[in-house]
């Protein structure tokens, strides 16, 4: 860890004024402090935003509004979230560990860095950590890496469970800079790695995530987040599926689907959504709908199983949802 300047502003304006080129915002610290200890991130200034008034979990006609500083565990425990957006609570509760969920913030969760072992190891190259230094994951150990949205420069998965659920639900992210505020759909917030894997999202220099809004919908209350991994807790997803369905009897009126653990960003599957729309919820429907789910996958030496796993995770999620209808 390198020496840095530490500031604790009390207002968003003050925080944004401190956000110079080498600055990093500190919320729960579960990603930033970890990576600073590993020398992966070395900000010259740490701006502790925990005193900022970016709190609140509110449900109104427009939907669910969550302040960027709300803790994962508090959002997961919220009665309205559990009732109207069950997949959000599930995605949160399947993340990390209880200790981490008590610290980690919603804003920070959306910005967490990949768990790629090469990204975290400064003795190896990594295009995301150090542009142009290469991607050892291509030829190294890549069982947990992405098969969708990859490039020759980077195959790291996006680690967030929450973001997968939020993308499926059409969430907006609220952002602020000293110049003003703006709102961006989470679906377009994340950037594919391409040749610039160090650019992970559309945030401008010094821009701060202030909150999110999840719209009301007919499908959010009928949703599930399914996370598949080797052990039952404290592990990132090998594959995950966030599925929300608007039912008309036993027929799927429309569905919203995003998957995690397989993509370089939270991955929408509009083709699968269309294949389900208007169909009777049967095993045959599900199997047919997922046939193309992993199309375009670029498997590596150790992660080729993820194409099949992705399809099966989806079928299982559809089945769970149909059985709990």
């Amino acid at each position: 860890m390198r020496a840095y300047t530490f500031t604790q502003p009390r207002s968003v304006r003050e925080a944004l004024a401190h956000a110079d080129a080498g600055a990093a915002f500190l919320a729960g610290g579960t990603t930033l402090v970890d990576l600073m200890k590993l020398d992966v991130m070395a900000p010259t200034r740490v701006v502790d935003i925990n005193r900022l008034p970016l709190r609140g979990i509110k449900l109104d006609r427009d939907g669910l509004h969550i302040g960027a500083l709300e803790r994962m565990s508090d959002v997961a425990a919220d009665r309205n979230v559990r009732r109207d957006y069950p997949m959000i609570a599930q995605a949160l509760e399947l993340s990390a560990s209880a200790q981490l969920r008590n610290m980690a913030s919603i804003g920070g969760n959306l910005l967490q860095r990949t768990r790629c072992g090469y990204f975290r190891d400064v003795t190896t190259g990594c295009n995301k950590r150090e542009p142009g230094s290469g991607c050892p994951a291509m030829t190294g150990f890549n069982r947990t890496h992405a098969i969708l949205g990859t490039s020759d420069a980077c195959v790291a998965t996006h680690p967030s469970d929450l973001a997968v659920a939020l993308v499926a639900l059409g969430t907006d992210v609220h952002l602020a800079t000293a110049q003003g505020t703006r709102t961006v759909p989470l679906d377009t917030f994340y950037a594919l790695p391409g040749s610039t894997p160090h650019v992970e999202n559309v945030l401008r220099p010094g821009e701060l995530v202030t909150g999110i809004t999840v719209p009301r919908s007919m499908w959010a209350p009928h949703s599930v987040y399914l996370k598949i991994r080797d052990r039952q807790s404290y592990e990132f997803a090998l594959a995950s599926a966030a599925v929300a369905v608007e039912w008309r009897g036993r027929t799927i009126n429309q569905a919203r689907i995003a998957v995690g653990g397989v993509g370089t960003t939270p991955w929408r599957l509009p083709v699968v959504e269309r294949a389900l729309a208007g169909q009777l919820a049967t095993a045959d429907t599900f199997e047919a709908a997922v046939r193309t789910a992993a199309d375009g996958a670029r498997p590596l030496a150790h992660n080729a199983f993820k194409s099949a796993l992705l399809r099966r995770t989806l079928v299982r999620a559809f089945t769970v949802l149909a059985q709990s209808r």
């Binding site: 190294g140 069982r143 052990r231």
Partner: peptide, 25 residues
């Protein structure tokens, strides 16, 4: 803990990546 044959590097170097059972298992 997979060993990279070309570099001799071990893939896991912490208790999140080197997995042992947790209580839930």
């Amino acid at each position: 803990n997979p060993l990279e044959l070309d570099t001799g590097r071990l893939a896991a170097s912490n208790m999140a990546d080197y997995m042992v059972p947790v209580n839930a298992d």
